[in-house]
């Protein structure tokens, strides 16, 4: 393994590229919502047949899951060596299976 100093040499790491990717994402997001005008979404229930349902539903559900997991983490997160104080050891030094 070698270490390169200048990590921004790579095209994907350049600010310009990242800005362009965000613009592409926004355009694709808008196009995906407008596709509801072109195709019948075949929603069989009341809510999922509304315009842009999958967009707000996807965004809302993901935001909810992130916040719920954060809340769970508040109660359930422990230090990495929580179970290792009785003789078990961390696997941080694990290598390939081929050794």
């Amino acid at each position: 393994m070698s270490h390169k100093k200048n990590s921004s040499d790579y095209w994907l790491a350049k600010r310009k590229t990242i800005r362009k990717l965000w613009m592409v994402l926004v355009i694709v997001l808008i196009l995906s919502v407008t596709s509801d005008l072109l195709f019948d979404s075949h929603g069989k229930f009341i809510v999922n047949d509304t315009f842009g349902f999958s967009a707000w539903f996807g965004l809302g559900c993901c935001a909810a899951m992130i916040f719920v997991s954060k809340g769970l983490g508040f109660f359930l997160k422990r230090k990495e060596n929580f179970y290792f104080d009785d003789g078990e050891k961390s696997n941080s030094s694990k290598n390939s299976g081929g050794e």
Partner: peptide
């Protein structure tokens, strides 16, 4: 068309989240 469109919407906005 509808199925592909809604799936794209769902996943792309999940990515945005």
């Amino acid at each position: 068309g509808g199925h592909v469109g809604t799936q794209f919407q769902l996943l792309l906005f999940s990515g945005l989240a």
